[in-house]
Each structure stands twice: as structure tokens, then as C-alpha cells.
């Protein structure tokens, strides 16, 4: 829970400088994230940064952190709904009792947004994500040193729902 408070606090400084920008929260089976999208320039591709917690390592706790930057392009925009695509890349920091590893991941998504009002939107995103890292794990005690090559792999399917507010 403290990670979620930290994530929300990270985005508070952005509130003052926003104009037609977007704050979002999103949830998926293996992650929770808050995001900030900068809309206030005349360019079809909008940058977005996301910070979140996840549980894709060997324990089930939501104690891994990821930071993600994406480039989003609105494909279709109607009064009540729209479609978009985005590519993203980021760093995943795995945290558990046995090891600490970081890996770079990338992916692409398609999204559908439903405009409740001009300010409030709901969205759903589905896409593909690639993140895999081989690392050496070793353990030493009075009897032996054991070494093994282990693998950290992120879920290839990215499916999330969320809410965003435009400022």
C-alpha cells in the first residue's frame, strides 16, 4: 500500500503545470500504475510516463516497481469514444527475499477510451509486452557454493483497465 501512496505523490508536482494533460490510474491482474500524459502541444504522438507496482517475480507480493514511457497516437476520436495505439518501454525492478534484478521491457498496445465527459474517461488496453532477463544466482554456505542461471520473465500479455482525468 505504501508503494501506491508513493506513486500518487510522484504525480502531485505535475498538477500545477498541467493544461489539457491527463492523469490516469490503471489496474491489471498483475499491476497497478498511475500515469501522466502530456497533451499540450500540437503533435499527433503524445508522450506518457507511468509508474507502477507489480508482482511478476517469484513471490506474489505487489512489491516490484516499474517505470514506463510510452508514445501514444490517437487513431480515432469521436464525441463518446476513441481508439489509440501506443508503444512503450521501461524498466522493471524485481524485489523479493531471494534476489533483486532489473530488466528493460518494451511492448505495444491498442486501447479503447470511453468519454464519460470531456474531462473524465475510462479506458481498456490490450497488447504485447516483451521482458526477459537471464541472470546468475549463487548461494554459498559452509558446505558448498552453488551457482545457477535463472530467468526473470514478464507476462507477454498486457491487459488493463483504467480511468483518466483531463486537465
Amino acid at each position: 500500500m505504501r508503494y501506491i501512496y508513493f506513486l500518487i505523490l510522484c504525480l502531485v508536482p505535475f498538477l500545477d503545470c498541467m493544461a489539457q494533460n491527463q492523469l490516469s490510474v490503471e489496474l491489471s491482474p498483475n499491476k497497478f500504475a498511475v500515469g501522466y500524459q502530456y497533451n499540450n502541444f500540437n503533435f499527433p504522438i503524445k508522450p506518457k510516463i507511468k509508474i507502477g507496482v507489480s508482482n511478476q517475480d517469484i513471490d506474489t507480493g505487489f512489491n516490484d516497481i516499474f517505470i514506463n514511457a510510452s508514445a501514444k497516437m490517437q487513431l480515432r476520436n469521436r464525441k463518446n469514444f476513441g481508439f489509440y495505439s501506443q508503444i512503450h518501454s521501461g524498466i522493471y525492478i524485481a524485489n523479493n527475499a531471494q534476489y533483486h534484478q532489473n530488466l528493460i521491457f518494451w511492448g505495444s498496445d491498442f486501447g479503447f477510451n470511453y468519454n464519460i465527459t470531456n474531462e473524465h474517461q475510462l479506458f481498456i488496453e490490450i497488447g504485447y509486452q516483451s521482458g526477459k532477463k537471464y541472470y546468475i544466482e549463487s548461494y554459498h554456505n559452509q558446505y558448498f557454493t552453488a551457482i545457477s542461471i535463472e530467468k526473470l520473465v514478464l507476462s507477454p500479455i498486457n491487459l488493463s483497465v483504467g480511468y483518466c482525468i483531463n486537465f
Binding site: Q98, T145, S148, E150, K151
Partner: peptide, 23 residues
């Protein structure tokens, strides 16, 4: 209280090799 006094990993889906060096 997880068990941390050894190597731990997700079970591999293919053959597995471990290097061991006795003291």
C-alpha cells in the same frame, strides 16, 4: 518466512543445470 538459504527460481520448463563446488 520464506526459505532463502539456497538458490531459488521459477521452475524451468526445460533441462536444468546447477554448478556445485564443495568446500
Amino acid at each position: 518466512n520464506p526459505f532463502t538459504d539456497c538458490i531459488t527460481g521459477a521452475t524451468p520448463k526445460t533441462n536444468k543445470t546447477i554448478q556445485l563446488d564443495f568446500e
